[in-house]
Write a protein that binds this DNA or RNA. Structure first.
Length: 1069
RNA sequence: GGGCGUUUAGCUCAGUUGGCUAGAGCAUCUCGUUUACACCGAGAGGGUCGGGGGUUCAAGUCCCUCAACGCCCA
């Protein structure tokens, strides 16, 4: 019995459940109990269930999308905890490199300073403060929503444990030749000076132009016309391409053109990438095409590919800020061209177009709307730019191939032979729910590109590589072997060499950068790795190696790793990989977290990061852990959209803080509604209202359309009840347009969607109030109860409970969350409250056995509801536990102080009596008929009426022990041997006439006739349908016999009902 | 351009391999304040399942096609 809650007493429970009064008490009890803490298990006998949280970015507070995902995980985790699994839910946060750095830089600007002014160390310190603030907020939110994470194990992607893993992973991949450096086209953000991953580029439709430029043929026989949306890049053209199927190709291919302005002579070549011109095509590209494509390998990814195919020169004509420059590989600058050097990209565009116009080489300009990649941070168009970056060789079979082989064979089609699952550890075990996302995963890996992992940021894991230019390959620190080593490989390929650095445990490579430039790089592992290496020189630790390197002029790479590099290690790094013994908190019982809980049971996430995150965790976990998967099941949940069908997102500013919903509806209500709306469709619309902070009333805000065309709440809103008062919206604050003040406060959000969950909580609350008020611990039956000798309705509710438990277990096993919520709702509200409690009211006070059944059913109900609504159930748990009487034989409900760690109920087949359920359903159909009749004649609920019916109906009423009498308000039940009572109405039930009398003093004959005529019309229509079916030979012969028989039965029943109704009508005439 | 999805009652959504008279919550209307709950109870109205075509004894469900909307990838 709890000592933090009062002894059970119905007086203690208010008539309305107030979540804010209950939730924090429950949270404290959970925290004190250590119920969510998991320890490694040395025994293989205990089943485990583990989940790593998708670590939220520390950029901002969580929104409803997070609430959804974390609620689903919590439901699963709580369910499995109750089912006796050793359960670990690992919480944590992600440093989110670019995103966090950007928000911190924004704040710095507001404070009047800049990142570059304060320097790297100070900036990182500042960012760390931001991280601490939001990490605390996020963990607080998780706790408030009831997430049963093991908070003692909270990790952060940049903490020591994770950093150790990152360092070891980088070292290992470097050693294995899976990390390389190369000049590649990257998505360059010229404003932030950062290379972006493909997924960080947002495509936006832009109203631009297509310029048609003439390039003269070298032989003077005319010109070709190229079409381009980016004329400024022509300075770097190194070819013109034409489709081999173009009729002009035979004549033009092999000739040269003289590149205007620059004077460079470049070839015309054939490549079928070029779109054939077709003015009648529905494809705008074909409409706009001139048939000739200018090829600029340094400034366009497609041109880069063409350049590779045809071995073209790569001439970079831009600087890092996207201005025209001759410092990055452009060395044939003509006198005419010199005028353009130094211009910004858009100035250069204008100037070049003007030059072509003045020189008669501008054929035409056409308006053209096309999509352009924009930086998701600075929102300017990105520039494909040639730059040095680090890559992970994701295309290697050890990564992409391994990911494909991991897929459940039932979920993939058309896999290449080398990618089909074999017998290797982890092969074929990765299963997606819903299944369709397996295809997304497959297609991504079939076309995967190497992964650019370097980012020009300060916030993140700095790349552990120190480099220096080799001044003279024959002298200084490297051995003469360098020249020899490099002579045998392709330019740019790194070659490992032996040196004092490699003797000390580092990896030493050299590579040729240009004809005359060489670079040597040293990857230094962390101490935990270094200690375990078999190295000839053990005199230096990491710090000593770094000091020695820097003393010799080596400089550490200033870039940091892509955020996803550390996220990719999350299921390993949070559990102490690679050396759990270095982190004693991850070990115990002769085992450690990694061996106990990896692979995890499930990853629940949004579909948008299947490629960014899921893929990379699979590749890394398998590579580093001998083929083992990071998780076996991947559940992709629906996306929460706002009321206008727009995705809720930070950048849009339409996200809803779960704390707002907890404030207006309570955590359980939020959770229940989120679970209930989780179907396997893609999106869920959530119309969002605001709560006026002045009057505390919800209202629909005024919406505005943003420049980008999104519908959002206007930054400032007027109080609907007091127009003199105003408030600011979450959107207004999120985009920085307004800030809350005392007079103009921030309005919380809410949504009527959550009313369903709140009402459900309140229903349960009051049902328990009723129950414990009727239970008397002095009289309740204390011994074991054989349910088959209990009252009919007690047998029925226990049978329904058993069926419900089965259905809930199946829903969890198949991740059908909405089924779980709906099943709970139906059982508790419909069966337990509307039916069972109403039926027992006349008998419960004097029936000790019924009291024990009632208590047991409530006990079990709290248990099955706990995974979804943990707060209210935990709050009610002591009251219900106290009220318990004897056990029901066949229903296991072992006592527990805490509901969170109580056992899931186990029901034996013996109590799942299907015949009782069938009889109840029949009786309920009769009840509904009677109630409908009562309602149509406005009979008062208290009015007891008399039923006269045939023996079969009376038998049913008797068999269901008071159910019909109580729920239909019957005062007297008698046979119909005397015929219809003089003042009565008749309903048709199972083909019989059932007479009801005592409804009113006088039956309204006309109304009664109208009602019967409605019944007759309805039955006649049904009969027509059934007869139609049965007169169809195809149906009678083709359909399964049991269906045909069912139709015959239904026809007979409808005909009998029709006859009964007609007889009743006749009687009135 | 490729892929995935959505379109069912006024609103938000269910509807498992094709098979009872297509369901729920909210909203609406009628009645009811019965000592658990008005965040309640009883009842009612409301849908040619986006349009068109096809397969089948039978289609919301399978196939084709058109339209609108959304997401991912290029």
């Amino acid at each position: 019995m709890s000592d933090t809650l009062p002894e059970s007493d119905t007086q203690e429970l208010a008539t309305v459940y107030v979540p804010s009064e209950a939730e924090h008490l429950v949270t404290e009890r959970w925290a004190e109990s250590g119920a969510f803490h998991a320890e490694p298990s040395g025994s293989a006998d205990t089943p485990t269930y583990s989940v790593v949280i998708p670590p939220p970015n520390v950029t901002a507070a969580l929104h409803l999308g997070h609430a959804l995902n974390n609620t689903l995980q919590d439901v699963l985790v709580r369910f499995h905890r109750m089912n006796g699994h050793n359960t670990l839910w690992m919480p944590g946060t992600d440093h989110a490199g670019i995103a966090t750095q950007t928000v911190v830089e924004k704040r710095l600007l507001q404070e009047g300073t800049k990142r570059l002014e304060m320097g790297r160390d100070a900036f990182i310190e500042k960012t760390q403060e931001w991280k601490d603030e939001y990490e605390a907020t996020i963990l607080g939110q998780l706790s408030e929503m009831g997430a049963s994470c093991d908070y003692e194990r909270t990790r952060f992607t940049m903490d020591d444990m994770c950093a150790t893993a990152v360092r070891h992973a980088f070292y290992t991949l470097f050693e294995d030749g899976l990390i390389y450096r190369g000049k590649r086209l990257v998505n360059w953000d010229p404003v932030t000076g950062t290379a972006l991953a493909d997924d960080e580029v947002e495509m936006e439709e832009v109203q631009g132009h297509m310029w048609y430029l003439r390039y003269p043929l070298e032989d003077g026989s005319g010109h070709v016309t190229v079409a381009t949306t980016r004329p400024e890049t022509m300075l770097g053209d190194t070819a013109v391409a034409i489709n081999p199927n173009d009729p002009r190709a035979a004549d033009l291919a092999g000739k040269n053109v003289v590149l205007p302005i620059v004077g460079r002579v470049i070839p015309i070549l054939e490549d079928d990438y070029v779109v054939l011109p077709d003015p009648d095509s529905s494809d705008t590209k074909a409409q706009m095409s001139s048939g000739c494509l200018k090829v600029t390998p340094a400034h366009d990814p497609n041109d880069w590919d063409i350049g590779l195919r045809h071995d073209l020169d790569v001439i970079n004509v831009m600087a890092a800020d996207a201005s025209i420059s001759d410092q990055y590989g452009w060395d044939d600058v003509s006198n005419d061209a010199r005028a353009f050097v130094g211009l910004g990209r858009y100035e250069a565009r204008e100037a070049i177009v003007a030059w072509f116009d003045e020189n008669g080489l501008l054929e035409k300009v056409v308006d053209y709307s096309h999509s352009v990649g924009h930086s998701y941070r600075s929102h300017v168009p990105i520039e494909p730019w040639l730059s040095d970056q680090w890559y992970v060789k994701a295309s290697d079979d050890r990564f992409a191939g391994s990911a494909l082989r991991a897929q459940n064979p039932d979920q993939v089609t058309g896999l290449a032979a080398q990618h089909t699952a074999g017998d290797a550890n982890g092969d074929g075990e990765l299963t997606f729910v819903p299944e369709r996302y397996a295809k997304t995963f497959q297609q991504w890996h079939e076309g995967i590109r190497d992964w650019c992992i370097s980012r020009q940021l300060w916030w993140g894991h700095q790349i552990p590589v120190w480099s220096a230019a080799v001044v003279d390959t024959s002298g200084r620190h490297p051995q003469p072997a360098i020249a020899e080593a490099l002579a045998s490989v392709e330019s740019g390929t790194a070659v490992k060499i032996d040196s004092k650095w490699s003797n000390a445990g580092a990896i030493h490579v050299v590579r040729q950068v240009t004809d005359t430039e060489f670079v040597e790089s040293i990857c230094v592992p962390g101490d935990s790795t270094l200690r375990r290496l078999d190295r000839s020189d053990t005199s230096m630790d990491e710090a000593a190696i770094v000091a020695a390197l820097e003393a010799e002029g080596f400089k550490r790479d200033p870039d940091v790793l892509d955020t996803w590099f550390s996220s990719a290690l999350w299921p390993m790094s949070t559990m102490g990989w690679p050396y759990p013994e270095d982190f004693p908190e991850t070990t115990g019982d002769g085992s450690d977290l990694l061996s106990t809980f990896n692979p995890t049971s499930l990853l629940s996430t949004a579909r948008e990061i299947i490629t960014l995150w899921v893929s990379r965790m699979v590749m890394f976990n398998r590579y580093f852990m001998d083929g083992q998967l990071p998780f076996t099941d991947v559940f992709i949940h629906a996306m929460v959209q706002d009321g206008h069908g727009q995705k809720m997102s930070k950048s849009l500013g339409n996200g809803v803080d779960p704390r707002d919903i907890i404030y207006s509806h309570g955590a359980d209500a939020m959770r229940f509604t989120l679970v209930q709306m989780t179907t396997d469709t893609q999106d869920v619309k959530m119309p969002v209202d605001m709560v006026c902070p002045h009057t505390n009333t919800p209202f629909t805000p005024e919406f505005i359309t943003t420049k980008a065309g999104h519908l959002v709440a206007a930054p400032t809103q007027t109080s609907p009840e007091d127009p003199s008062k105003t408030m600011v919206s979450a959107y207004g604050v999120a985009v920085g347009e307004v800030a809350p003040t005392n007079d103009v406060p921030l309005a919380r959000n809410t949504s009527a969607k959550f009313d369903a969950g709140r009402n459900f909580s309140n229903k349960v609350w009051n049902a328990v109030r009723f129950a414990i008020g009727r239970l008397d611990s002095e009289t309740v039956e204390a011994g074991p109860i054989d349910i088959s000798s209990a009252r009919f309705v007690d047998q029925w509710i226990v049978a329904r409970l058993a069926a419900t438990i089965d259905k809930l277990e199946a829903a969890i096993a198949t991740y059908q969350f909405n089924v779980y919520a709906d099943t709970l709702y139906d059982f508790i509200w419909r069966d337990l409250c509307d039916r069972y409690l109403e039926v027992v009211k006349p008998t419960i006070d004097d029936d000790p056995t019924q009291q024990a059944v009632l208590a047991a059913v409530f006990d079990a109900s709290l248990r099955i509801m706990a995974p979804v609504c943990p707060f209210i159930t935990e709050t009610l748990w002591p009251y219900v536990s106290d009220a318990r009487g004897g056990e029901i034989i066949g229903l296991e409900l072992p006592a527990s102080d805490l509901l969170a760690t109580a056992a899931w109920p186990v029901a034996a087949d013996s109590i799942a009596n299907p015949n009782v359920i069938i009889d109840f359903d029949r009786a309920y159909a009769l009840i509904t008929e009677i109630r409908t009749l009562r309602a149509s004649q406005n009979v008062k609920p208290k009015q007891r009426i008399t039923l006269n019916g045939p023996a079969e109906v009376l038998a049913l009423i008797a068999a269901t022990g008071g159910t019909v009498e109580t729920l239909a308000g019957l005062g007297e039940v008698a046979d119909d041997s005397e015929g219809a009572p003089p003042v009565s109405s008749a309903v048709a039930f199972e083909g019989a006439q059932v007479f009801l009398s005592g409804l009113t003093d006088e039956v309204d004959i006309d109304a009664e006739k109208a009602r019967l005529e409605d019944v007759i019309a309805q039955k006649t229509k049904q009969i027509g349908g059934f007869r139609g079916k049965l007169s169809n030979d195809g149906y009678v012969n083709g359909a399964p016999p049991h269906l045909v028989q069912e139709t015959r039965d239904m026809l007979a029943a409808a005909e009998a009902d029709l006859a009964a109704a007609e007889a009743s009508l006749e009687r009135l005439a």
